Simulated scan of single mutants.
Amino acid sequence: MERASLDDADRWFDVLLTSDDAQAAAMTLSAGQSTGGPDNRHRESDQWLFVASGTGTATVDGEAVDLASGDLLRIEAGEAHEIVAGDEPLETLNLYVPPEY
């Protein structure tokens, strides 16, 4: 057994746990900060993004969707994506299956 907490993250993006099959990472974007873009994709890994707190927008293969606390978004392997925080910090837990980083 392994245990981690979002509180263990000390940078804007931190890998928390990794196994042979999956990986968990914490990501915190400051208000208005973005990550990714049209060339950002994980060729072999699905990304499951859970919004722990805050609001924002995800654009996945050109389709924008609003994000709010409690939302779960699956970004399929190969889909281009960008995440943008709203007017407050956006804190997420991301699962990569299989591991990406």
Score class of each variant (00 low, 15 high):
Gly86Cys: 01
Ala25Lys: 06
Glu44Ser: 14
Ala26Gly: 09
Asp66Val: 02
Leu49Asp: 05
Tyr96Thr: 06
Gly78Asp: 04
Thr35Tyr: 08
Glu76Ile: 06
Leu17Gln: 05
Asp66Phe: 10
Ala77Tyr: 05
Asp39Met: 10
Asp14Phe: 08
Gln33Met: 09
Gly78Met: 03
Pro89Ser: 10
Thr57Lys: 04
Ala25Met: 09
Val97Met: 11
Asp21Val: 11
Leu29Tyr: 06
Asp66Ala: 12
Ala77Ser: 07
Asp8Ile: 02
Leu17Cys: 03
Val51His: 02
Ala31Ile: 03
Gly62Phe: 05
Ala24His: 07
Ala64His: 03
Glu63Tyr: 07
Thr28Gly: 01
Ala64Thr: 09
Asp10Glu: 15
Trp48Val: 13
Ala9Arg: 01
Gly86Met: 04
Trp48Gly: 02
Ala58Gly: 08
Asp10Ala: 11
Gly56Gln: 02
Asp10Gln: 14
Thr28Met: 09
Ala25Pro: 00
Ala24Leu: 14
Pro99Leu: 11
Pro89Ile: 11
Phe50His: 15
Asp39Ser: 14
Gly86Asn: 02
Met27Pro: 01
Thr59Lys: 12
Gly56Asn: 06
Leu16Lys: 09
Leu72Arg: 13
Thr55Arg: 15
Asp87Cys: 10
Leu73Met: 09
Ser30Gln: 14
Gly62His: 04
Thr18Ala: 07
Gly56Thr: 05
Ala26Lys: 06
Thr18Phe: 10
Thr59Phe: 05
Asp21His: 12
Leu16His: 11
Leu6Tyr: 06
Gly32Val: 07
Ser45Leu: 11
Leu93Trp: 13
Ser30Asp: 15
Gln23Asp: 07
Leu93Glu: 04
Val15Asp: 03
Ala64Ile: 01
Ser45Phe: 01
Val15Ser: 08
Arg43Met: 12
Asn94Tyr: 12
Pro38Cys: 10
Ile75Gly: 05
Ala31Gly: 06
Asp46Thr: 09
Glu79Arg: 15
Phe13Gly: 02
Trp48Asp: 04
Ala77Leu: 08
Gly78Ile: 01
Thr18Leu: 08
Leu49Glu: 00
Leu73Glu: 02
Pro98Glu: 03
Leu67Asn: 03
Leu49Gln: 07
Leu6His: 01
Glu82Gly: 00
His42Trp: 10
Glu44Gln: 12
Thr59Leu: 06
Glu79Tyr: 07
Asn40Val: 09
Met27Phe: 10
Gln23Thr: 05
Leu95Ala: 07
Glu2Arg: 12
Tyr101Arg: 15
Ala77Lys: 11
Val84Gly: 03
Ser45Gln: 13
Glu76Thr: 10
Glu63Gly: 07
Leu29Asp: 02
Asp20Arg: 15
Ala26Gln: 02
Ser45Asp: 02
His42Leu: 13
Pro99Ala: 08
Gly62Leu: 03
Arg43Cys: 00
Gly54Tyr: 09
Leu49Cys: 10
Asp14Asn: 11
Pro89Asp: 04
